[in-house]
Structures are given as structure tokens and as C-alpha cells.
Nucleic acid binder design. Structure first.
Lengths: 336, 336
DNA sequence: CTGTTAGCGCATTCAG
DNA sequence: CTGAATGCGCTAACAG
């Protein structure tokens, strides 16, 4: 590996001069600059960022923790976040944690050692306030932005969608269409997203005086298969629901499959509202009503806040996107 | 930021001893180890990886270049690749290149400066041999694994699916069902994936003596919307196709929408085969026949090869997965 | 078992 | 405009 010293020798200058043509070329005379650049070219010199960062104490590195990359929300957030950070000269160090707090902790340790200048936590977390304590403490030393809720670490800046409200809108919409038997097809309610979605669902049901029937509330894995299986279960009930609010677009598509392959029609026999507003929701047939979560906007908002923090500017404590209910053909009035 | 020196002072030992309790604790006496560990704990010491790596010349960093994270293939590959590398003690430095060769080049420069120990290039590339020349040269200095084809850089290890064969299978299947008017709904054919898919399609058509009709071959954006629009265009033809091979599952779902919302039935009025084998293909209704691309296996194969290279072991020049045609309800016999 | 010393590759004073 | 010298935080001989 060629070093700054090799270049200095080849160009017959000091290492300081080489350093200058790289970092402050305007301070170097035309002639020596040319000499040095030639040597750099010839020897394929790539300055060792480790050494550089050791002295400048600036890594331009941001850590990104992703609990789950396979859902319909993460990729879009990651894309917009990474793009925005890169455009501003930062680089990204990622880790996929499978939503495992222990793994997350280890990753954070590594990131701290690598001297990342900020950490972004993407996606839902356990409703475990204690587990988040460390994050809260860490946030006093290094910029941290959480995408989604962060119970128990009040100092951490959160960028998220108001999921209670989103779930409320979705459920209310179904109620207003005349449905009374409305199912909630949810994910694991120990996680923030699903906890809050249940809350919104419940609020809507209660507001309109409808009973929350336990057999209508199912928590399953938030992917296609989970949606399919849970929906099958609902359809086999003696008195099946006439509508369902489903906590994720992937689950909703799985439910579509269950409904359609049971010979039922959407929305005639079953109304469906999803959650996420991913491109998928618009793509399926019939197009899926969904609560739009603004994934890309969330990613760039997180980047914006992170950049502010890195510059030492004051930032908002929290950015909450108001979800929008996108009404599409998957919902219809309740039959009499 | 506390340093090894601070710990040494606090524990009243030398920095060498601190270094030992961190790296080779078995060489330190129980007593001093306890002292040092206490100091580390108390001062929240996290060894500076930059300094460490500068002297050990080992970063455990792998660069991962992702051209497009939004398709149905990348997330699964990334997940399995990253998981496998992390399990083996490596960390990941990512960048999203939007398939822009210039951006890719800049990213590689940064990665080289950061002293990554290997680089993985994910996903399709332009059919531009010259653009890949640099990769080929680089591969002589540092382990490089390309996921997908890599024309023009023969030294680079490639992990990919035989897309020609996959497209051939898909098309042949439709032909054997009696279809003669078979469309190809493809992506931009300047990119390897779509170039080779067209090739496989053509080979099948020619083998069975069917004409390749230009108006049946459309190149569009490989997402839902592209599939929808291209399919609409095909349906409006005076003599529309009776079957289509679609180069990606997302496009296929977009096409589903176009077909179903035009009042046609799948597979009665239109047979469809997709490509990717993503969970999505199984989830939609009717379940989509597709060419399975083994995303997760591809990711872990790439990791496996990278790990071998990092250990200095000999590796295969190329790993080619034989795609499998998964027959589902989206295809039926051609009507007379 | 522990301390001393010498760099790793670079940026940054401070002279000249 | 350029060079010599110093140190960033750490590991790795080498002594003791």
C-alpha cells in the first residue's frame, strides 16, 4: 500500500507538501502540485482515511441500524436517508439487527469504536423502556435519531408517523362505511408499531361504541404469509368480520389472497385497509386503501435532523408525520 | 473522548497493559485485569478503532455497493449477505449508487481510502465492458465479488443466476401451454439482467419456430407502474398477446392490475410468468408463476466466497445458480 | 506478568 | 510557498 511518504519521495517534496496538494491545493505552487499529482496518479495513491481521521478526529461516518430490511417500509427509508447523507459528504456504516436488542447493543459498541459521528435507529422497537435507557444516555454524547417511537429515552430525537392516528383513521373509515364487525390484523404487539396501531383501532371502535371482539384481533408475523394465515382464520369464524384493518401492506396482500382464493370478492364481501402506503398497495388489484406513512419523507427528515445535529444546530425534539388515509377500491359499504 | 492513556493512568498501569486486557486478557494477571476493567467501565472507554486499525492494518470492513435497494431482489440479498459477514466478524460499509457508474466510481474511491478489505457489487450493471475495466484491475489488488454479471472484467468473481436459462424456461413453458402470441415485458436492455432475459426469451421463441414480434417486446421501468403501463399498451394492441413473460415480479404485479382492471381474467384470458421468485409472487392472487432466483442463497454465496478470499483461499471463478421455474395458477393453456 | 519504546500514515503547527 | 518536527491513539516487539 503506497503512503504519503512514497509520494513525497517520488515527487521529491516533503510529506507536508503532499498533504497540502490533497487538502489545500491552493496553497501549493502550480509546479510542485503538478509533480505531486503525477506521482499520486502513477503510484495509485489513495490517502489512508484511518490515519487522516485519527488526526483530524472526523470520520464522516454515520451508523445506521436496521432491524428488518425485508418489510415494505425500510428500503425506501434507507434509500432516501443514505442518499441524502451521501449528498452531504457522509458515509454509512450499516448493520442489520433483526430487532434483537442484544445484537443492537453490540452493533452500537462497534459503531462507537469506529467513531461514527451519529447513529440512526430505523424501525420499530420493543415497548421495553429499560432496553432503551442506554440509547438515552448515549444521546447526550453523540447525535442519535430514531425513526419511529423510542419509549424510555426521552432525549432521543424521533422521526415518525402518528400511528395511533393512522390506525384510528383507517378504522373510522370502515366504521363510517357502515361496518360493525371489523377485524384488526396486527403484528406482534410487544413492538411499538403494532402496540400503537392496536391503540388507534381500539380508540376508533370505542368512540363509535363498537365492541372490540377478541376473536377479531390477531397478532401474526407482518409478512405475506402471516396475513394470509390470519385472514384464513378470520374467515373460518362462525361470524366472520365484514372488514379488516391490516397493520401492513404485505400482510394485507396476503389477506387478499386468502379472501380471493376463498371465492369472496373485494370489496363486495370484505373491505380492507392496509398500512404503509408502499407502492405495493397501489399496485395490487383491487388497489388497496392504505394509511400512507411517507417512507421517503421520513428518511430525508431523519437525514435533515442528523445533519443539523452534526452541525451543532438546535433541532426539533420530534418530527411527527400526520398519516393520510388513501382511499382506494378495496373498501365498500357494509351490506345490510 | 477517553483514550487508552486515560485508562492507564486511572488504573495505574501502562498503556501496554490496558491494550493487553482488551486484546489478550489471558496474558494479564487477575488482579490488574480487574483494576483495568473497572477503569474502562467507569470512564466508558471505547477503544479507538481507527488507531487500532492503523497499526494492525486490518479494518474488518467490507464495502457493499447497491445500485437499487427498492426492487424485490436487493433487500433479501443484502440481508443474507450482511448477516453472514457480521456473523464472521466483518462490518459493512454501504453505498447506494443508483446504478450510476460515476457515483459507483466515487464510492469505490472512498471505500479504498477507508481501507475496506473487500468489495461486493450488488445487482445489474450496464452492458458496458469499458466501464467495468477498472473493477477488473482493482480485483487484482483486493477481493471483489460481483452479484450478477460483470462483462469486461473477467477476473472478478461472479455470483449470479443463469438468467438466459431462466427466461428460456419461462418462455418455453408458455409455448408448451400452446401460446403463440407471447409478449416480453422487460426492463432497460442496456443492463445485463434485461439483456440476458431478452436473449433467453428469443432463444425459446426461435427454438419453437415462433416469430419475435417487435410490438410484443416492451422495455420499461422495472417497477409496478412500468409493468402496469406496458401491459396496458400490450392490451390495446389490435392483436394482443395471450401470454407474457415479465422480467420482474414487481412489473408482473403491475401487469396483473392492468389485466384485471381491464376485466380480463388470469389465467383464462392471459397467462403470466414473472421473474425473481420473491415472496410477492406467491402472495398475489392468483399466485404468480415465476422463475426463482434464490436471493438469499445468492447473498450467502457471495459472503462465502468473500470470506474465502479474505482468508487467502482459492475460490471459484463464478457461482451460477440454476433458476427454477415455479409453476403456479397464473398460467393456463392457450384458448383455441 | 508488566513497562518502555517505536512506529502505523497522516495533518498541522512553526520556522524559514 | 515549503520542510522539519510533533502527535493523534493504539499495538507490538523487546526487555526486565
Amino acid at each position: 500500500m503506497t503512503t504519503i511518504y512514497d509520494i513525497a519521495v517520488a515527487a521529491k517534496v516533503s510529506t507536508a507538501t503532499v498533504s497540502r496538494v490533497i487538502n489545500t491545493p491552493e496553497l501549493v505552487s502550480e509546479k510542485t502540485r503538478a509533480k505531486v499529482e503525477e506521482a499520486i496518479e502513477k503510484l495509485h495513491y489513495a490517502p489512508n482515511a484511518l490515519a487522516r481521521e485519527l488526526v483530524t478526529k472526523s470520520t464522516n461516518l454515520i451508523g445506521l441500524l436496521i432491524p428488518d430490511i425485508a418489510n415494505s417500509f425500510s428500503p425506501a427509508v434507507v434509500d432516501s436517508f443514505v442518499g441524502e447523507m451521501e449528498r452531504n459528504g457522509y458515509n454509512i456504516f450499516v448493520s442489520i439487527t433483526d430487532a434483537d436488542p442484544e445484537k443492537e447493543n453490540k452493533c452500537i459498541d462497534i459503531m462507537l469504536k469506529k467513531r461514527v459521528e451519529g447513529i440512526v435507529l430505523l424501525g420499530t422497537r420493543r415497548m421495553d423502556r429499560l432496553a432503551n435507557e442506554r440509547i438515552g444516555i448515549l444521546a447526550r454524547r453523540i447525535p442519535i435519531v430514531a425513526i419511529d417511537y423510542m419509549p424510555g429515552a426521552e432525549g432521543v430525537c424521533c422521526v415518525r408517523c402518528d400511528e395511533i392516528l393512522g390506525a384510528f383513521y383507517a378504522t373510522e373509515y370502515l366504521i363510517q362505511l357502515g361496518h360493525k364487525r371489523i377485524a384488526l390484523l396486527n403484528g406482534n404487539e410487544e413492538y411499538t408499531t403494532y402496540y400503537y396501531k392496536r391503540k388507534g383501532y381500539r380508540q376508533a371502535m370505542e368512540k363509535y361504541g363498537l365492541p372490540v371482539r377478541e376473536e377479531y384481533c390477531i397478532a401474526t408475523t407482518p409478512y405475506f404469509r402471516g396475513g394470509y394465515e390470519a385472514c384464513m382464520q378470520l374467515l373460518s369464524l362462525p361470524e366472520p368480520p365484514t372488514a379488516m384493518f391490516i397493520s401492513g401492506d404485505q400482510m394485507a396482500v396476503g389477506a387478499y389472497n386468502a379472501i380471493l382464493s376463498s371465492g369472496l370478492k373485494i370489496p363486495d364481501d370484505m373491505s380492507v385497509v392496509g398500512f404503509s402506503g408502499s407502492p405495493l398497495s397501489k399496485a395490487v388489484y383491487p388497489p388497496l386503501s392504505t394509511v400512507s406513512q411517507y417512507a421517503r419523507e421520513t428518511g430525508s427528515a431523519a437525514a435533515g435532523i442528523m445533519l443539523q445535529k452534526l452541525r451543532g444546530e438546535e433541532t426539533k425534539e420530534r418530527v411527527v408525520f400526520q398519516p393520510t388515509l388513501v382511499k382506494r377500491a378495496s373498501c365498500g359499504p357494509a351490506k345490510q
